[in-house]
Design a protein around this nucleic acid. Structure first.
Length: 880
RNA sequence: GCCCGCGUGGUGGAAUGGUAGACACCGGGGACUUAAAAUCCCCUGGCUGCAAGGCCGUGCCGGUUCGAGUCCGGCCGCGGGCACCA
């Protein structure tokens, strides 16, 4: 018996099909030697407790790929886990009490419960959380292996120090140079910290970017710039009047060709020479001033440029009688180059501003070709590939490019022996120490006799103690009464455990490898890693373009070196896709002190009056009849404090309250609607703006598909129509276009095609079997995006087995070719007419037809044709 | 400040250097209905014209090209990252 026509009710069908998939174990990943494997991974979430639309979009994209690849016959691995260590858990403990562990595992349970109804094809048996001792114990084992491989060391590095709370702050916790809780001005302070030697791999990480052809070009560019390879000159100034031991001052410059424009030398406030001079209270005061504020590059580089003339002078290497003053300047970074520079104000904007402020000379070294030496209003910084005329050059031709000038200057320095060409990288070693509780403990022990000793592997994991408190600032591990006291793994004497934990980027730098053997008692298992690695498709936010991805690339190399990954996995992500964000406009009012107050979308009402879009607080619009003066009406709303300011769309964030809860959408419309909407409209790499109208439209469309399927289900078996050939052709074309769109990550185009195909079926007059074939094909093509409704239609229309396990349809190539094409005819580049011609008509024939076209004749009005361009199958352009 | 993107109708967007605006949302008109909702059909970049049509139009200015949303240079605006947010 045929099912009666029923309403589309996702709340009935979605749980039913989810249960069916679970019963058959449809998504459990299995090593199957008979099939090619495909590993698709979305960046795992931080367990905040609530999923948001960005998650829905991210996981739906991965799910579309996973379901599509499974249908193409691949053995698919599609796992999910939790990036579960990090500050928010400690912040929650401080603000609301409770324990980070309980908070985190509670959030994981909540979030998993919210993800399940999305119907994702995830192998949940491989679930892991980075805060599981099972996970971080293996991370500690690798840390020890990396220590033994010489990839780990300790050195002093600066941190944000809150002098009131006596604690280290994250950059995020420094607001306008002040601690977020204490409000005290933050200082930069040095601390001994643990580092990974990522800079040993600078050249390799840079060179290997070329091989990542399935990564977005912009990500590779950002990483290349981050690694920052530069060729320059390193040389030493001879100093005059410097303290003992500072007879020479090493500087590094990428523009040695501008040496004759030098007007000062400058050193970082953290330079050893600056430290040596700190005995002078004036210098100490200046350096202390420089250390105010946080450690972030943004803060340092946007700070006002200040300098202090030390009175020390250096001799110019090309003219020993020429002396330059040595300044301490806050914009010189100790981490880059030698922490000392020479300033050439004419050709560097920062130096220019500095020289202007402190009245230092500004002398041009080169001018634009054809220009004369003249006072500068700003630094002249042409591209190095551009030719310029050197007026104070000392090496190479008078007219040459900047690149040539630099090379000539290096050659000059090397020939005369005053300096040498060196290659430097901007990439710094990776500081992994965090003075916090909720992270992976660094598995080392400090012993009075043996020094710093790794913990024995059989003592791993070094587990976090549960009995900690967050009522005072600082590291709870450090003030725990017993935890840090232990025996030295080497000599057995009483010793002290390291209380620093690891940066959470370490956790996320190898989880993709752990998914291949998530329960193993070693970090990885060779056969599993060999079969499943690499990740074939990695999907995540562009915000991770640099750090997470670069650290993961380094870690994969380190894991290979320590025997935890095969050589083929040193670039762990074969293809990367960076999805855009889900955005929403922001609704804001201000409190009596003028501070912004944000409102959730569900707490405001949007309406239109006389083409003006107005947003007010509350769930009801105010009475709007009889409004003569819209401006007066808006003023009145503002006076009552009802008017809400609309700030343009931005990434959904809790602090701005511009968030839409996916659970509300699923409750109202079902998961398929949410999935369909986030995949439609916007290209996946771009931001998508969430609108309630868009979600309703998606729901309506699924309802139409449902109704269409019901109608076809009721057609008599022997119904004959005239449109069989047309519908078969449309079906083939839909298969072809959807397949190519999914392969190219153009999900929005796949969906546009499916809209069109649905309309075509609805209007078709074809025989019953052809209609059924079309609607079954529609279901299968929709199934990666909307798997539940697809299963229902598949079952109703006689599809075999589960739609989720059915093979992807193939288009009959014969049905994809058209015999005739329509060619637009342009005259001087403007479209004026069109003709329809057989597909393979000879160009000469096409030209003849085009020139004979009556519209063309009319437009030409007898003018002679200079040229005619025929792009076969594309366009005709007549030039007069 | 530095690095990287993006900018197309009222809105989201489509367009291997080759017919700008596919597909959708909103809006308008109509059908059905006692009525409304739902559903279905049609129209919908701007200006102009009775119409056929014409002119303009992809943030702004300039360039390359038979032809530019697309390539190049300069600007403006918005967003991401900047090493302890994840």
């Amino acid at each position: 018996m045929r099912p009666l026509m029923s309403r589309y009710d996702p709340s009935v069908i979605e749980p039913r099909w989810q249960a069916a998939w679970e019963e058959t174990g449809a998504f459990t990943a299995r090593r199957d030697p008979a099939k090619p494997k495909y590993y698709v991974l979305e960046m795992f979430p931080y367990p905040s407790g609530r999923i948001h639309m960005g998650h829905v979009r991210n996981y739906t994209m991965g799910d579309v790929v996973a379901r599509y690849k499974a249908a193409q016959g691949f053995s698919v691995l599609h796992p999910m886990g939790w990036d579960a260590f990090g500050m928010p858990a400690e912040n929650a403990a401080m603000e609301r009490g409770g324990h980070p562990k309980d908070w985190t595992y509670g959030n994981i349970a909540d979030m998993k419960a919210q993800m399940k109804p999305l119907g994702l094809s995830i192998d949940w048996s491989r679930e892991l959380a980075t805060c599981d001792p099972e996970y971080y114990g293996q991370q500690q084992a690798m840390f020890i292996d990396m220590m033994e491989a010489g990839l780990v060391y300790r050195k002093a590095a600066v941190v944000n120090w809150d002098p009131v709370d006596m604690t280290v702050l994250a950059n995020e916790q420094v607001i306008d140079g002040k601690g977020w809780r204490s409000g005290a001005p933050v200082e930069r302070r040095e601390l001994t910290q643990w580092f990974f030697r990522i800079s040993d791999y600078s050249e390799e990480l840079l060179a290997a970017l070329d091989g990542l052809t399935n990564w977005p070009e912009k990500v590779r560019l950002m990483q290349a710039n981050w690694i920052g390879k530069s060729r320059g000159l390193q040389f030493a100034f001879e100093t005059v009047g410097a303290p003992e031991g500072f007879e020479r001052l090493e500087v590094y410059t990428t523009r040695p060709d501008t040496l004759m424009g030098a007007s000062f030398a400058a050193i970082s406030p953290d330079h050893p020479l600056a430290k040596a001079l700190e005995a002078d209270p004036e210098v100490a005061e200046f350096v202390a001033l420089c250390r105010k504020g946080g450690t972030s590059a943004e803060e340092i580089e946007t700070a006002e440029k200040i300098g202090y003339d030390t009175g020390i002078r250096v001799k110019h290497p090309l003219d020993p009688t020429w002396e330059l003053p040595v300044w301490i300047a806050n914009f010189i970074l100790m981490d880059y180059g030698t922490g000392a520079i020479f300033g050439c104000p004419a050709h560097d904007q920062r130096d220019f501003e500095f020289a202007t402020k402190y009245r230092l000379p500004i002398k041009a070294v080169f001018v634009a070709e054809g220009a004369e030496d003249a006072p500068l209003a700003e630094a002249f910084v042409p591209m190095k590939s551009e030719k310029v005329r050197y007026i104070r050059g000392f090496a190479g031709a008078e007219v040459q490019t900047g690149d040539e000038g630099v090379a000539a200057a290096i050659a000059h320095a090397e020939a005369r022996g005053y300096g040498q060409g060196v290659t430097k990288y901007r990439l710094r070693d990776w500081g992994v120490s965090r003075q916090r509780y909720w992270g992976c403990p660094i598995p080392v022990v400090h012993c009075a006799t043996c020094g710093v000793v790794p913990e024995k592997k059989e003592n791993l994991p070094v587990e976090l103690p549960y009995d900690v408190s967050f009522d005072v600032p600082g590291n709870p591990l450090d003030r725990h009464p017993t935890w840090k006291h232990c025996a030295c793994p080497n000599c057995g004497a009483p010793a002290r455990r390291e209380t620093d934990t690891m940066d959470t980027f370490v956790d996320s730098s190898w989880y993709f490898a752990r998914f291949t053997a998530p329960r193993a008692t070693t970090p990885t298992v060779p056969e599993e890693a060999e079969y499943w690695m690499n990740v074939d498709q990695y999907i995540g936010g562009i915000e991770h373009a640099i750090l997470h991805l670069l650290y993961s690339r380094f870690f994969a190399r380190a894991m290979h070196r320590t025997g935890h990954l095969p050589a083929k996995a040193i670039e762990p992500f074969n293809a990367l896709f960076t999805q855009g964000m889900v955005t929403h406009e922001i609704y804001m009012t201000r409190d009596d002190q003028g501070r912004p107050v944000y409102h959730l979308p569900e707490d405001v009402t949007v309406f239109n009056v006389a083409d003006r879009r107005i947003v007010v607080r509350g769930t009801e619009p105010p009475p709007i009849d009889m409004i003569d003066d819209v401006d007066a009406f808006i003023r009145a709303l503002a006076d009552e404090g009802l008017l809400v300011e609309v700030i343009p769309s931005a990434k959904m964030s809790k602090s701005k309250k511009n968030v839409v809860d996916p659970m509300n959408i699923i409750a109202s419309f079902g998961a398929d609607t949410a999935r369909w909407f986030v995949m439609s409209d916007s290209p996946p790499e771009r931001d998508v703006e969430w609108t309630s109208a868009g979600a309703e439209a998606a729901f309506k469309h699924l309802g139409r598909v449902w109704a269409l399927s019901s109608r076809i289900g009721e057609m008599p078996e022997d119904h004959k129509g005239e449109g069989d050939a047309d519908l078969a052709k449309a079906t083939a074309r839909a298969i072809d276009e959807v397949t190519r769109s999914i392969e190219g990550f153009a999900f929005n185009k796949a969906i546009a095609t499916l809209y069109g195909f649905t309309n075509t079926i609805a209007r078709a007059n074809a025989s019953t079997p052809v209609m059924k074939e079309a609607i079954r094909t529609l279901a299968k093509l929709m199934s990666p995006m909307t798997p539940h409704i697809a299963e229902s239609i598949w079952a109703d229309q006689g599809g075999a087995g589960l739609c989720a396990q059915a093979p992807w349809p193939k288009a009959d190539p014969a049905l994809l070719v058209d015999d005739t094409v329509t060619l637009p005819i342009q005259i001087n580049g403007k479209r004026r007419a069109e003709i329809s011609v057989p597909k393979d008509m000879a160009i000469a024939e096409v030209e003849k037809l085009a020139l004979a076209n009556e519209d063309v004749v009319r437009f030409l009005a007898g003018q002679p044709v200079k040229k005619i361009i025929v792009v076969p199958g594309r366009i005709i352009n007549v030039v007069v």
